[in-house]
């Protein structure tokens, strides 16, 4: 075509893909971060029975 059209489509797809990847990465990181919190809660349960 003429370069401009390709550049436009690439920009849109590139930015959207990049942002999606960022979202997926952050979401995975947050899910991992929430896991140890759950473990801690379970560990603290037997606390008073000690």
């Amino acid at each position: 075509m003429n370069g401009y059209v390709e550049a436009g489509y690439l920009a849109v797809l590139g930015v959207l893909a990049g942002y999606s990847a960022l979202l997926l990465g952050r979401s995975r990181k947050m899910k991992k971060a929430l896991l140890p919190v759950k473990v801690k809660e379970k560990r603290s349960e037997p606390g008073p029975t000690e």
């Binding site: 997926l24 947050m30 929430l34």
Partner: peptide, 16 residues
Amino acid sequence: HRYQIADMEQSVLDVE
């Protein structure tokens, strides 16, 4: 997706 992340971040803060 973004809302989900914000929600998780919020609950991490609250749990802490």
